[in-house]
């Protein structure tokens, strides 16, 4: 199924066009994007670390402090999404905004807000995980594989 046949166009003409398009296509500014991702992702992580220290200061052990810290960060991500600000953070910070747990909250809350016009069941219910779904599916699949490997290797 060659496109030259479909279009009755000289394939060389298509190749020349695509070559030219590839040559002049505006590219992402990778360097600047990486710097922003580092700053934004770093700032969120720093904030999370601060929250964790605050819980430790209140007498939580460092292991016990992790859970309430996650809850605070998820709450922050959800709040900022609801206020319509989180998408601006990611627009600037890219993966630096998407990857931390606040970004996961954004990926859940954004569809929840989006699909409420289609109802509680077929809207929010069915589409809540449209963005975060792959993370859950492959995250759980990987956790299963690692668990099996650990069992087979006999480490506990």
């Amino acid at each position: 199924m060659g496109i030259d046949v479909r279009n009755k166009v000289n394939p060389d003409r298509i190749r020349r066009f695509q070559d030219y398009a590839n040559r002049i296509r505006p590219q992402k500014t990778v360097g600047i994007n990486l710097a922003w991702a580092f700053l934004v992702g770093g700032a969120i992580s720093l904030f999370g670390q601060g929250v964790m220290w605050a819980f430790e200061h209140e007498g939580f052990s460092s292991q016990a402090a992790a859970t309430p810290t996650s809850i605070v960060l998820v709450g922050m991500g959800a709040l900022l999404t609801g206020l319509g600000w989180y998408d601006r953070i990611v627009k600037r910070g890219g993966m630096g905004g998407s990857l931390p747990i606040t970004g996961f909250a954004n990926a859940i809350v954004a569809p929840a807000m989006e699909y409420r016009s289609e109802g509680l069941v077929l809207g929010i219910g069915a589409k809540l995980f449209t963005v975060a779904g792959p993370v859950l599916v492959y995250g759980m699949a990987m956790a299963f594989l690692v668990g099996v490997a650990r069992y087979l290797l006999g480490t506990s």
Binding site: R25, Y86, K91, N106, V109, E114, V131
Partner: peptide
Amino acid sequence: ERQFRFPLELGYQRSPT
């Protein structure tokens, strides 16, 4: 945006093209 891309409040970066 709703039909072709992502939920409105989901953060993502648009490409230059």
